[in-house]
Structure formats: structure tokens, C-alpha cells
């Protein structure tokens, strides 16, 4: 039961983080469309790290 609550919290946190990354990346791309490739790459890296963290939390808590 607590596991599930914990998992939910992790997912909320990860979702907020991903949303922030995605939103900021969109802003940045809108501001500098010519740098879209670099921004995307950086975005994916950060998202991947965040995702790794979230997965680690989910699996360690299981």
C-alpha cells in the first residue's frame, strides 16, 4: 500500500520535472529556433537523467 503511494509520489515528481524540462525547452526553441537541435539533445539528456532517477526510486521502493 505504502509502496503504491510512494510510486504515485515519484510519478508526480517526475511528471512535474518532465513538464518543466519540456516547457522550458519549448520556450527556448521558440526563442531560438535555429538552436532547436542542440536544445532537443540537452532536453533529452536531462529528461533521461530524471527518468533514470524516477525509475531508480520506483524499483528500489518495490
Amino acid at each position: 500500500m505504502y509502496n503504491l503511494i510512494g510510486a504515485g509520489l515519484v510519478v508526480i515528481g517526475a511528471g512535474l520535472g518532465l513538464g518543466k524540462i519540456g516547457g522550458s525547452a519549448m520556450d527556448a526553441i521558440a526563442r531560438q529556433p535555429e538552436a532547436a537541435g542542440k536544445i532537443q539533445t540537452a532536453m533529452i539528456i536531462i529528461a533521461a537523467l530524471l527518468e533514470g532517477l524516477a525509475f531508480a526510486a520506483l524499483i528500489l521502493g518495490k
Binding site: E51, G52, A56
Partner: peptide, 11 residues
């Protein structure tokens, strides 16, 4: 590397 292995596995 731990993040690397966990995220691939979990995904």
C-alpha cells in the same frame, strides 16, 4: 552507470 542500466531495463 546505475542510472544508465536502470532506465534501459525499466523502460
Amino acid at each position: 552507470p546505475f542510472a544508465l542500466l536502470i532506465r534501459l531495463f525499466a523502460n
